[in-house]
Computed example of a mutant assay.
Amino acid sequence: MKLLPEGWRRARMLAAALTLWAPGAVADLRPPVEGAIRVATFNAALSRRHPGQLAQELRLGGSEQLAAVAEIIQRVRPDVILINEIDHDRRGVAAALFRDFLKEGRGGAAGIYYPHLFTAPVNTGVASGFDLDGDGRMDGPRDAFGFGWFEGQYGMAVLSRPPLDEGAIRTFQRQLWAAMPDNLMPTAHFSDAAPTLRLSSKSHWDVPVTLPDGRVLHLLASHPTPPVFDGPEDANGRRNHDEVRFWVDYASGAGWMVDDSGRAGGLPPDAGFVVLGDLNADPADGDARRGALLALLALTGDTAPRSAGGARAPGPRKTGDPATHTADWRDAGGPGNLRVDYVLPSKAWTVTGAGVFWPPKGDPLRDLVGEGGDASSDHRLVWVDLK
């Protein structure tokens, strides 16, 4: 862990001042128009290898990486944000410490406080009781209901300035994969374990936010497994597809899903919602089975937030528009840059602004993202303004 040096603080403050005159700036970071709410998602790479490590790092004052993540959030200033890959502990200590960490301004950006926080258990590191990877053991990270070295690794948290309707929050951590009609599970590959496997590699959450005008916005949050790191059975690719498809069914009012409290069914037809998170699927490129994602994009209407940095990023050209990319992954031996992070509002909302925080080279804020995740995260924060 590297503590934040004072010289780096001064450099960031200077960059913040210069950005007011920088040509080709990252995006329009002005506040939302009156009456709009800014909703964001960020795979912030706040997972560590050992339980309690993230909380200890935050207690000691943070690191350069944590400071960069915090400043990105402070620059964009979302009203509501889903953090993917923040380690979950039973008392939610790490998430609460990170919320406090955001209150102190970084690099010249003003601090931001979120009075409302939700985090909950996820499937990563939770033992399945089966040898899912066939290595003769049942205690490895690939034998868990979701890949993880410990329970709660790669967790999630929602931070919000408007209040959350905590009594109406629904979680689907224990939803069985086999219960999904027409699922793509490779049943023969999993054998006896198949009926017990959970759909979510982390969890699926419906978190209602009460807006200032009294209306409710349902945050439909998840982080499906990457569609790689498996064999010809394509278990991860199939699971990714079905994790994304869950939201298509849920938002369409399907009745097959049952939440962790035992309540069945999806959203009512008049509910306003936004699907958000690192979905690990690109609509045009990469290894994902794209059918569910394309159905979700059609259901919501795709605003396709963009960035100048993504548009100018090096690497082989792909089918999709590079300006919409949200992940900065290596080209040699990797998938290259892809669009995998989404904020997808239902069509009842008017989108008044959107963007991806990916400054181009020459922008004073470029060092907040670095190259390939070496400064903050290999993902980019994505936001949409809704009215």
Rank of each mutant, 00 (worst) to 15 (best):
L3W: 06
E6I: 10
R9Q: 14
A16P: 00
D28C: 00
P32F: 12
E34V: 11
R38K: 09
R38D: 14
G52T: 09
R59E: 15
G61S: 12
E64T: 14
I86D: 11
H88D: 03
D89S: 04
G92S: 12
F98C: 06
F98W: 13
F101Q: 08
A110Y: 00
P115C: 11
L117D: 10
T119M: 05
P121K: 00
G125K: 05
D135F: 03
R137S: 14
P141S: 06
R142Y: 12
A144F: 01
P163F: 04
P163L: 01
L164E: 01
F172A: 02
L176N: 05
A179F: 04
M185A: 09
F190K: 00
T196S: 13
L199F: 05
S201Y: 08
S201F: 05
P208I: 03
R215F: 08
P227H: 11
P227Y: 12
F229Y: 13
G231V: 11
N236S: 13
H241G: 03
D260A: 06
P268V: 00
G272Q: 13
V275A: 07
G291K: 03
T300N: 06
S307P: 00
R312M: 14
T326L: 02
W329D: 14
V340T: 11
D341L: 01
K347D: 12
G353D: 14
F357T: 01
P359M: 06
G362C: 02
V369P: 10
V369S: 03
D374I: 09
V382F: 10
V384I: 13
K387E: 14
